[in-house]
Amino acid sequence: MRNHPRPHDLLFLRLPDRFDTGGDWPAWLDAAWLTQAPLVVRREAAPGSLLPVGARGLTRSERCKGYVQRDAVVRCVTPEMLARLHPPTVHTVHSVQAGECQSDLPPLRALAAMAPRLKELGLVWGPTGGAGFYLASGLPVLRADSDLDLLLRAPAPLPAWLIDCLLRLQEQQDCRVDIQVDTGAGGFALNEYARGGRVLLKTAHGPVLAADPWHAPEVQREAA
């Protein structure tokens, strides 16, 4: 596992009971679920060997924040690893439940359509959200109305022509596509940046409004 997992990485646990919510687990969550469902790394500063993570269930309402010790993690799957799957397939030892194959749903169709073009552009990117979770675990969390969430690593400002290309690529899909840009110091929505003005930059120390998300003086760069 990378020494410093980054936001949106998916962590599989060897010790599921080490997921700490600061209280009782919600009714939908148990150790059996966490033996097959990864935790999602959150963008938050945490002390020592603690990792800020979130659990998700099968429905949108099933979300739970918490923390886990690094030594409880057995495997880390990054968005970039999932982007290398061509065509998108379930990259895991876990199997999708019988009758719940989701490969024809709009988010995965959009991912298959966009992946070759994103590769041609030389971008460092990967699926997150429900699509990333499904590809890493095989668990049927996607719905016909699910968005496709993508993460784009961009340590330097994106040229205008590339932003235009990405926006056009988004518009050509038959589901909503949300591209989050990660500068290394925080993350922001590409659509919001394209509209002009200040953007909401999500950082490990809280949200910041920034006119230039790559050069916000009050933001500390996160560990790579």
Rank of each mutant, 00 (worst) to 15 (best):
L29Q: 12
A31I: 06
A32W: 06
L34Q: 04
L34W: 04
Q36I: 14
Q36H: 14
A37H: 03
P38N: 12
V40R: 03
V40D: 02
R42W: 09
R42M: 09
E44R: 07
E44Q: 08
E44N: 04
A45F: 13
A45W: 15
A45S: 11
A45N: 12
G48T: 05
G48L: 05
S49H: 09
S49A: 12
S49E: 11
L51P: 03
G54C: 09
A55K: 01
G57H: 01
L58E: 02
R60N: 08
E62M: 10
R63A: 01
K65A: 12
K65W: 05
G66F: 02
Y67C: 09
Q69A: 10
R70A: 08
D71T: 10
A72K: 00
A72E: 01
A72D: 04
V73Q: 01
V74D: 13
R75T: 08
C76Y: 02
C76N: 09
V77E: 02
P79E: 00
E80G: 14
M81T: 08
L82M: 11
R84Q: 14
L85M: 12
H91A: 15
T92E: 03
T92I: 04
V93D: 07
V93G: 12
V93T: 06
S95W: 07
S95Y: 07
V96K: 09
Q97V: 15
A98P: 15
G99N: 05
G99M: 03
E100A: 08
C101F: 13
Q102A: 08
Q102N: 05
S103T: 15
S103F: 15
S103P: 09
S103C: 15
